[in-house]
C-alpha cells in the first residue's frame, strides 16, 4: 500500500520533461502524474472529512474507544493536532505519503495490519470475477454475434434480465440452489477454492451481461468493415476471423468498460462478502463504518482510489497495446 501511494508522487517528480516522445513509458509517466493529482485529491478529501466530523479529531480517530491518556497524547503528537490547520494538513499528507495509517483503536491493531489480513481475500474474489467476466463475455459474445436475428435477440433479452437482478438476491438464490439444496458448494467461508465459486458467480453476473452486450455490438460492427471481406477472401474460417481480426476491434470499447467494472467491484464485494460470510475488505469497511472507525475508513477510501488509478493506467496500456493507431495520438 505504501508503495502504491508513494510511487506516483516520486515518479512524477523524477519524470521531469519527458525524454521520449512515444512508447508506453511516456504514456505511463503522463498517467502517473495525473494519477498523483487524483490521489492527492482523495487524501485531501479524507482530511476534510476528519475536520467536519463532530467532536475533536482525536476523539474521531479514537472512535470512543477507551484509551489511556498517554495514547491520546501520542495521537495528538503524531497528527500534530495542537498546531494550526495548515500544519496539521501537511503532517497528514506526510504521514499518508510515508504509508503511516496509524492504529485502529476499535480493532486495537495497526490499520495496515488489519487491511493486510483482509485484502488478499477481496483481491482473490475481485480478480476471479474479472477473469470470469472477461472469459465468459468473450465466449458469449463470439457465440451470440450470430447473423440470425432471433439468436441475438434472445441473448440480449437474457442480458437485460441478469443486469436487472440485484447481486445480493442472486447470491441468496445461488446459495439456496447450489449450497442448501444440491450441496455442491460450501455456503460460507473463504478458505477453500470451491467456496469462491458462488460468490464469484454472483458478483460476475452483472458485469458479464453488460460486457457481452458491448462486445457483441463491437463484433457485429467490426464484421461490416471492409477488411473482413479481405480476410474471408484469404480463405480463413469464421472462428479464426472472429478471434484473429474482429475480436480485437470489439475489445477496444470493452476494455474501457472493464476498467470501470474492475474499479467498482471493490464496492460490489461488500454485499457479496456479507451474503456469503466471507472474510475481506467489504466486511471490514461495513464494520468500520458502523463503529465510526475513521482510521480504517480513511485507509480503505484511499486504497479504493489507488485501485481505480491503477486500473485506469492498466486500461490505457491495454488500449495502447490493442490499437496501434492510438500510439501516435499520445505524443
Amino acid at each position: 500500500m505504501a508503495g502504491v501511494l508513494k510511487a506516483p508522487a516520486a515518479e512524477a517528480v523524477a519524470a521531469g520533461p519527458p525524454r521520449r516522445r512515444t512508447g508506453p513509458a511516456r504514456l505511463v509517466l503522463v498517467r502517473v502524474a495525473a494519477s498523483a493529482a487524483v490521489l492527492w485529491g482523495a487524501v485531501t478529501a479524507t482530511f476534510c472529512l476528519l475536520q467536519v466530523m463532530p467532536g475533536g479529531t482525536a476523539d474521531v480517530l479514537l472512535a470512543r474507544s477507551a484509551v489511556t491518556p498517554e495514547v491520546r497524547d501520542r495521537i495528538i503528537a503524531e497528527y500534530r493536532l495542537d498546531d494550526p490547520l495548515a500544519a496539521q494538513y501537511l503532517a497528514y499528507l506526510g504521514r499518508i505519503a510515508r504509508g503511516e495509517f496509524g492504529d485502529s483503536y476499535v480493532l486495537r491493531r495497526p490499520v495496515w495490519d488489519a487491511i493486510g489480513s483482509q485484502l488478499p481475500h477481496t483481491l482473490l474474489l475481485v480478480l476471479a470475477t474479472l477473469l470470469v467476466t472477461l472469459v465468459a463475455s468473450v465466449l458469449l459474445a463470439v457465440v451470440s454475434a450470430h447473423r440470425r436475428r432471433w439468436v441475438r435477440s434472445s441473448f440480449s433479452a437474457a442480458e437485460s434480465l441478469v443486469v436487472a437482478l440485484p447481486p445480493f438476491w442472486l447470491g441468496l438464490l445461488l446459495l439456496t440452489v447450489f449450497s442448501f439444496n444440491l450441496h455442491w458448494f460450501p455456503a460460507i467461508g473463504s478458505s477453500s477454492l470451491s467456496g469462491l465459486v458462488l460468490p464469484t458467480a454472483a458478483l460476475a453476473a452483472g458485469p458479464v451481461a453488460v460486457m457481452t452486450g458491448v462486445l457483441r455490438d463491437g463484433l457485429l460492427r467490426a464484421l461490416e468493415e471492409p477488411f473482413v471481406v479481405t480476410a474471408r477472401s484469404r480463405g480463413i474460417g469464421e472462428l479464426a476471423l472472429r478471434l484473429r481480426h474482429v475480436l480485437r476491434h470489439a475489445l477496444l470499447p470493452a476494455t474501457t468498460l472493464l476498467g470501470w467494472i474492475a474499479g467498482s467491484l471493490i464496492g460490489g464485494a461488500v454485499i457479496i462478502e456479507i451474503v456469503f460470510s466471507r472474510q475481506g475488505i467489504g466486511r471490514m469497511v461495513l464494520f468500520a463504518v458502523e463503529n465510526k472507525d475513521m482510521p480504517v475508513v480513511i485507509a480503505i477510501v484511499l486504497l479504493t482510489a489507488a485501485v481505480f488509478v491503477l486500473v485506469n493506467i492498466a486500461v490505457d496500456i491495454l488500449v495502447w497495446m490493442i490499437d496501434p493507431r492510438t500510439r501516435e495520438a499520445g505524443s
Binding site: E225, P226, G235, P324
Partner: peptide, 19 residues
Amino acid sequence: RGRRIGFVLQDALGSLDPL
C-alpha cells in the same frame, strides 16, 4: 479462397486490418 482465387479489394481505408 486465397489459395486458388486471390481477391484484391479497393483500399477504401480499411481493406487491411488496421490493428
